[in-house]
Amino acid sequence: MAEPMKIRATMQGDVADVKVLMNHPMETGLRKDAKTGQMVPAHHINTVTAKINGNTVLEGNMAGGVSKNPYLGFKVKGAKSGDTVEVSWVDNKGDKRTDTAKIA
């Protein structure tokens, strides 16, 4: 079971400033385990989707080149305080996670 994301969203003028921290190892598949000498299999988030009040605002694709525990910051015009931000990800093993937060 994937650990929850942390989402912080604040209004900066008429633009919502959204910051997300996902919990994921983001293994590239190119790294050797120092102890066993075996290659660590690729395990990374493939897609990310962000919605505000149910409307998609951001769709992303990523791979092992994004740092462990991925951080995403984006800005949405027209959103307002109290709106719900929903962020979801799906990884290459089919594991997924969705979390929500209110815009402060």
Binding site: K6, R8, K19, L21, N23, K68, N69, Y71, G73
Partner: peptide, 8 residues
């Protein structure tokens, strides 16, 4: 530090 990766 805006959103440190070690929060968990």
């Amino acid at each position: 530090m805006e959103f440190p990766p070690y929060e968990s």
